[in-house]
Each structure stands twice: as C-alpha cells, then as structure tokens.
Design a binder for these strands. Structure first.
Lengths: 204, 204
DNA sequence: GGCAAAATCGACACGGTGTCGATACGCTGC
DNA sequence: GCAGCGTATCGACACCGTGTCGATTTTGCC
C-alpha cells in the first residue's frame, strides 16, 4: 500500500468513523489503527485529525459546487426554479456526506481554517442569491431589506435547518419535507405572493 | 468568601473569560485561578468546566423567557407585533450574553446536556410560533407547508442568523439591520403579502 | 544488489483532566 | 475558650491524548 492509498484510507476511515462519533470523540489512535497504521505514522500524512476533516470538507464542498453548477445549467432562467434546484443541490450533497457536514459545522467554531473555508462557500452562495434577488421586483420581504441581508439570512437558514434535519435534532424538519419548506420560505421572501396558480412554469 | 460567593465568582469569571476565549481554549486551571482558588478546589463546586457553561446557559435562557413573556404581555394581540417583540426579546437577551450564547452553540454538538437544554428552549419557541401560524389564513409560505415545519425553519433561521451576527461571521448581517431582516422574512412567510399600508393594526 | 527516499514505529515529554486523602477554616453548642 | 463537625482548600497522583524525534524497515529505481 503506497502513500496515496494510505492517505485515502485515512480519509475513508475518518469519514466512516464520523458516522457514529463526533470528531472530538475520535482519537488519532483509532483513526490510524482503522487505516492500518500506528498513531505516529498517522502524522506522516496529516498534521492532526482536524486536518483530515478539512480535507474531507474540501471534497464535499467541491462536489456541492459542481452539483449546483450542473443543476443551474440544466434548468431555464426562471428564478423560482433556480432557487429550487440550488437548494436541492445543497441538500443532496450534504445529505450524502451527512457525517462530514455535521462534523464540519461542529468544529467550525474552534477551527479557524474550517471557519474560513466555510465562510468562502457561504459567501459564494450569498453572492449568487443576492444577485438573483436584485433582479426581482421589490415585493415580499425584499421590499424592506437589502438583497444581501435577505440572501444572507436565507442561506444561513438553509444551513441551520439542514443541519438540524441531518442531526435529527429537536426541533427539526423531516427529510421528506425540508426542501419544500425551505423553498416555500425563499419564495415568499423573494417573490412575495404565490404565483398565479394558472401559470406554473411548465404550462405555456 | 463563602461557598455561594465562590460559586458565583466561578460563574462570573467564566463568563468574562468566554468573551475572549472559546470554552475549549479555557482550562479548569485558569477559570479556578480567576475565581481565586486552586484547580482542585474548582471541583468542589462544579464537576467540569462544561457544567459551568450549563449553569450559565440556564441563567440566560431564564432571562430570555422572562423577557419574552414580559414583551408579549406588553403588546396587543396583533400577530405581526407578537413576532417582532418575540424576536427582539430573543435578540436582546442573547446580545447581552453574547459570549455565553456563542459558547453554548459551540458546545451543543458535543455536550448532550447542552443539546437537550437548548432543544427544550427551541421547542418552546416553535410551539408558540406554530400556534400563531395556525391562526392565520393560509397565505404566504404557510400555504404549502405545515405550521410546525414553517415555525421550525423560522426559529432555526433566527438562531443561526443571530449567532452569525454576534460572532461577526462572514457572511453575517449587521446588528443594526438583523432584527428587521428577520421580521421581514417572518412576515412574508407567515402573513404573505405586505399589509395594506392604509390599515395599520391600531385602526379598527 | 545497493542506495536514497518513503514510510513506519516506539519512546518520550508535555499539558490537561479528575480523584483522593490530608489539612485548614469557621461555626455552633457547651 | 474549646471541642467537634461540616465546609472548604490544596498538593500529589494516575490517566489519557497529543505531537515530536530519532531509529529502523520497506520500497522503488538504477
């Protein structure tokens, strides 16, 4: 087993262990043993277990962005559709990597690098959302607040709500209805009154 | 200095230290020294530094609830006003105890007792909000999703947005506009279109 | 086969935690 | 005043996880 394989094994082991334990419950020893090496060998590959999480975060974030871009490319310019597919892309990715997402959020407060990484990601989403909001007529909540503030609040809501759903917190929203709930709030806040029921996007 | 004073000193010291350091950056030693006792004496009062945080959380939560109830009692039954004063009560309390609020959120993921305590608090707010939503005509986002899901999402949004504001995260909303932003989204989601500007609640 | 680089490991020192037993303090009743 | 008891304090200890270092083995290449 060469170095790259070993590094992949550490990442894989860590992601699996995070399904059942928080990062701070894991010791470097168990991660290393899980990947088939001794604790001190672990430090040949990563400077700390936190660095492993950072690496996992990177992968998940890359996937989320790719999925979002693909989804945007696949739908028309209808802004309601853009909201829905964007939120869905976010949801799908972080759901697939539930453990990493939850661990990342958990350690964000005490890991400056994780915080910064996540900041950049969220800022990208906010930027995108604010741009979309600015193009809409100022109805709904958008009438009273700046597009950027509105975009920030909505994106932070998504983050927290999905975290609660994946962690099965109390209170939280079922997986089955969480995306619909978020989309409904985004729609009400950005576009105001529900669209004329006679003109759904699909109809001509 | 008797036992009660000493316990109070520990709580006070810890809250002050949390203004500048996260809980995991604090050792029992520095908290104890700050309160004028040795590390081992600390354990006479609290089983761990986490228990100190729990105690601090209890006080803040009690204050938030009291403030909310007082605010509700002080305004009429207009649901828009109820939303605004409820959110403001939440904001004011957690702003005054910024350090404790942030530390609490930070340690929620790895402290089961903190999680449970916070769960109960959030559930109380959600219950209240869902009741209020159920009384409204089903417009806005409320048309499509259950009152409880909507209430959950809105309250989680408040939690996360205020956390970001107090932590001065990127992205986050300025203190000056954060309450307005939240109220605007709540209003759009629960009540739908903005109220007819000519019919403020006070009119008959 | 030999050699350098890659990879592995055991041993160490450090820092924080929580416990224990010994001791000092302070009040109450005599 | 002091005996006695519960309250409060402390130092010493054992434990656990971390990260480093130097020595050793393994790998891949000429």
């Amino acid at each position: 087993m060469n170095g790259d394989d070993r590094e992949a094994a550490i990442l894989e082991t860590c992601e699996v262990l995070l399904e059942t334990h928080s990062l701070h419950e894991l010791s470097v020893d168990v991660i290393a043993r899980g990947a088939g090496i001794s604790r001190s060998s672990f430090y040949f590959y990563f400077p700390s277990k936190e660095a492993v999480l950072l690496s996992l975060m990177d992968r998940v974030i890359g996937e989320a962005n790719a999925r979002r871009d693909a989804a945007f490319a696949a739908v028309g310019p209808d802004p309601r559709e853009l909201c829905r597919v964007g939120i869905t892309a976010f949801y799908d990715t972080f759901r697939e990597h539930r453990a990493v997402s939850l661990a990342a959020a958990d350690s964000r407060d005490r890991l400056p690098e994780a915080r910064e990484l996540w900041s950049r990601v969220m800022d990208g989403w906010v930027e995108l959302t604010a741009g979309l909001i600015a193009l809409q007529p100022r109805t709904g909540a958008a009438a009273a607040v700046s597009p950027r503030d509105l975009a920030t609040a909505l994106n932070l809501m998504n983050e927290r709500v999905l975290h609660a759903t994946f962690a099965q917190d109390t209170p939280s929203i079922d997986e089955a209805s969480v995306v619909d709930t978020l989309v409904a709030i985004w729609t009400a806040a950005i576009f105001g009154p529900a669209p004329d029921p006679g003109t759904t996007p699909e109809r001509t």
